[in-house]
Amino acid sequence: MLEIIDVKKTFNPGTVNAKTALNGLNLTLKDGDFVTVIGGNGAGKSTMLNAIAGVWKPDEGKILIDGTDITPMPEHKRAKFLGRVFQDPMMGTAADMQIIENLALAKRRGTRRGLAWHIKKTERAEYRELLASLDLGLETRLTSKVGLLSGGQRQAVTLLMASLNKPKLLLLDEHTAALDPKTSAKVLEITDRIVTESNLTTLMITHNMRDAIAHGNRLIMMHEGRIVVDVEGEEKKKLTVEDLLGLFAKASGKEFSNDRAILS
């Protein structure tokens, strides 16, 4: 479904700040894969997601979705294949617009936006039901500005938006990192439910190794712009945090360098 072939990306090339973020990245996802992604600081996790989303073009390599080469497509054109949730809860929603308006904007992802009214009457009931499924009491606040919601509520709404119209691929970029532990657990629970219900192919970056083990059917670990560990199925279920640290040391010849990931 998703194929990343030999993708390379260097930021600030030719300067002292040159940083090779992706160094010949290869990854193939099967339909319905729910892959958790871990790695140290600067390993290239977010860079990989941004390469898929088209925030910039890679220096080399190709990215395919269902066999279609999306590498030359601008960000807004690829959006029809993708659902995205970001680390910063402010980033995924329009704060001055209503909850229902945000959902309606997401519903039209990948369609031509014309002079039809921006919310159809029939959509209202659908959104109310979806919001009720979050169990956050948002179904009674359809016309509230998103800016009035808490970070966790905003991430939950962004998740709904990202999953509308069943995107081919869901990209979650540390979407619980800015939340307190309780809210984070709640948003992860919602994530699991949405991914399972719609059988979405998903890439989820997390800084938390336990979360990475507990969620999804496959786990990859990145280091210096490449994938160094790739475990799935039964083998993944049996993993422990110690196993992961060992695997990382073996693959990279270094200690894992993300304190936050080990401690949390």
Binding site: A79, G92, A94, M97, L105, R108, R109, T111, R113
Partner: peptide, 15 residues
Amino acid sequence: RATGNNLNMSRAQGI
């Protein structure tokens, strides 16, 4: 309106 409110979100939603 979405563009003026959040460029990043707008692009992610295909605008």
